[in-house]
């Protein structure tokens, strides 16, 4: 039986890798991949904690929800990235600084 702390460490690592990717990558797609990492870290936590849940399968159910939502979020994000590319002719976030106005 694998102890809970192992799951949590793995998920923390995943989250940190995702965070790192979000903060450092020069490509919007890669940032999106980082976000997926972070979502998956959360999903892993759901599943791991679901073992201790009184309602059977509650954690797994939420994990499935989260995966669906993440897929929808990725679809929207990819559409935004496409539009950003259309507008700026680049998807490097460090070159797009129009948010400050």
């Amino acid at each position: 039986m694998i102890p809970l702390s192992h799951f949590l460490i793995i998920s923390a690592c995943l989250f940190c890798i995702g965070l790192y990717a979000v903060l450092t990558k020069k490509n919007a797609i890669q940032i999106l991949i980082g976000i997926e990492f972070m979502i998956n870290a959360a999903v892993l936590n759901f599943v791991a904690f679901g073992k201790f849940d009184k309602v059977n399968g509650g954690g797994q159910l939420f994990a499935l929800f989260a995966i669906v939502l993440a897929a929808a979020g990725v679809a929207v994000a990819l559409a935004i990235i496409l539009n950003v590319y259309k507008h700026f002719k680049t998807i490097d976030p460090s070159k797009i600084n129009k948010l400050k106005d």
Binding site: L19, V22, L23, T24, P93, S94, I96, N97, K98, L99
Partner: peptide
Amino acid sequence: FQTGKLQHYLISML
């Protein structure tokens, strides 16, 4: 803090 770059905002939020 107001650089206009997405990732800088994210760092700030973090």
